[in-house]
Write a protein that binds this DNA or RNA. Structure first.
Length: 199
DNA sequence: ATCTCGATTGGCT
DNA sequence: GCCAATCGAGATG
């Protein structure tokens, strides 16, 4: 189980979004350990991507998108915390939204936090997974490449995943490019509908 | 201090 | 499929 290094994140955002599928996301604090396999992501680019916060002017909230890759980028939408990871080299904006994981670690603790019994409802959406894993503004800016961080992403040797893509979900003005990536047919993704093979 | 908006969710038709 | 509750940040006064 190896932590993904900075170089993994400092690449083209859509490549990072695809590459994160099948990796293990892990959170730990005094309450316990929770985590799961990333099964759905979305890429958010810089200028020219109307859906991206980096297409607007820099603020305290979004400036982290211009920083180095591998940092937690967290903000609230519709009363839910959303968790992203920064991408690209310093100066170039980009981030990947983690939309769903397949729960594998600390399932009992996640059930307690989410107040749902159905495992399929535990982490199958961007706001659901942050609640289950207790990811909030507190973790904004955390470096995911450091072993001592409360939040890390690991390589666990999953190979030959069948990857599908679609347009991004819930986005008002989306690009023509398909920037949502997910593991085909995985029951833990947020929406099953869009079902096209990536490339 | 107040208003508006949104990369959502869950409940209802 | 539609819709409204959600709540913090940013903008505005």
């Amino acid at each position: 189980m190896k932590i993904l290094p900075r170089e993994f994140y400092e690449r083209k955002t859509p490549e990072v979004a695809r590459g994160l599928l099948g990796k293990l996301l892990l959170h730990r604090d005094d309450e316990g350990e929770t985590g799961g396999i990333i099964v759905e992501t979305e890429a958010y680019l810089g200028k020219g991507d109307p859906a991206s916060r980096a297409s607007k002017k820099k603020t305290k909230l979004n400036e982290i998108m211009w920083s180095r890759g591998g940092l937690a980028f967290i903000y609230m939408v519709h009363g839910k915390w959303l968790f992203n990871i920064t991408t690209e080299k310093p100066g170039i904006p980009g981030a990947v939204l983690i939309r769903a994981i397949e729960p594998t670690i600390g399932i009992e603790l996640m059930i307690k936090r989410r107040q749902v019994q159905n495992i399929l409802e535990l982490t199958s959406g961007p706001g659901k997974l942050t609640e289950a894993m207790k990811i909030t503004k507190e973790l904004h800016g955390v470096d995911l490449t450091l072993p001592e961080s409360p939040l890390i992403v690991c390589e666990i040797g999953l190979k030959n995943l069948e990857i599908c893509s679609s347009h991004r979900i819930g986005v008002k003005k989306d690009l023509q490019r398909k920037l949502r990536f997910f593991v085909c047919g995985n029951p833990y993704i947020s929406k099953q509908k869009p079902f096209k093979r990536a490339l």
